[in-house]
């Protein structure tokens, strides 16, 4: 039976992980390749790197980090942040990423999704959606959640699927950083409407939150950052908690 995935996410800036890291036994606590390998040991099912600078000057730094990581990581690696074209995506894949997530650029020009899917296969195209509650629906925001688009998040997820996305990385702008739990209604709405896997993101502050999103929605995976970085619990502890409550994990 397909297991639910736990994905630690590392926000990378200028080649370093920026969210506070409180890890024991590592030479360089902010160094992404070492952190990724440490999470694999804990039982992480995948790793996601988000390049939060994503400027032209730091692009090569990120690619170097990706290739170094790929040489020592034996679970899938997704890279996102600042992917603007098919050629950006090719660079990331050639550097060693298994999947690449695209966000603002896909909203601006949705054909990038189909072009990437045709060139590299849909299994490596992740469409990242930042959704925020506006009146009675969720609206897509781009550019790190700063720009409203007027597009409905559920409709956009369906369109991304039609265009060839292999997966949706769904972040709730309302829940992100607040640590009060995933946005269950948003996650459920999107996961019920698409037939590609949905990764829930934003708001995770405890292992209970991860249980809730799996128990109450059809999300295939849960992404989290700070609970792992601050050593609040390990990936292994989250999995044990889920297993005890009947959620199938690796």
């Amino acid at each position: 039976m397909l297991t639910k995935r736990i994905i630690p996410c590392l926000d990378v800036k200028d080649g370093k992980v920026v969210k506070g890291i409180n890890f024991k036994g590592l030479r360089d606590v902010g160094y992404p390749p070492e952190l990724a390998a440490a999470y694999e040991k804990q039982g992480a099912d995948e790793i996601t790197f988000l390049d939060i600078t994503a400027s032209l000057e730091t692009r090569q730094t990120m690619l170097d980090i990706v290739s170094e990581t790929a040489g020592k990581l034996f679970v899938p690696l997704t890279v996102g942040g600042g992917i603007r074209s098919v050629s950006d995506m090719r660079d990331a894949l050639n550097a060693g990423a298994d999947k690449v997530s695209v966000n603002s650029a896909a909203v601006k020009d949705p054909s990038i999704i189909s072009e990437c899917a045709e060139s590299f296969g849909r299994q490596c195209v992740v469409v990242a959606i930042d959704g925020k509650r506006v009146d009675d629906h969720w609206e897509v925001f781009t550019h790190g959640g700063t720009k409203p688009t007027g597009i409905d998040a559920v409709e956009w997820a369906k369109k991304a699927e039609d265009l060839g996305a292999g997966e949706i990385l769904l972040t709730s702008m309302d829940a992100d950083g607040v640590k009060t739990g995933y946005d269950i209604p948003l996650t459920a709405a999107v996961a019920d409407e698409v037939s590609i896997p949905v990764i829930a993101s934003g708001g995770c502050g405890s292992k209970e939150h991860i249980y809730d999103v799996f128990a109450q929605t059809n999300a295939s995976a849960a992404l989290a950052a700070s609970i792992f970085h601050y050593n609040e619990c390990t990936v292994g502890e989250v999995k044990e908690y889920l297993r005890d409550r009947g959620i199938v994990v690796r």
């Binding site: 397909l2 297991t3 639910k4 995935r5 037939s195 590609i196 896997p197 995976a221």
Partner: peptide
């Protein structure tokens, strides 16, 4: 849900699976 994406178990008694933990 397609693609089938993530970790899943392989049931096999082939020698290539000898000593392979949980087979996920």
């Amino acid at each position: 849900v397609i693609p089938h994406m993530g970790w899943n178990q392989v049931v096999s008694d082939d020698p290539l699976m000898d000593g392979v933990g949980d087979r996920n």
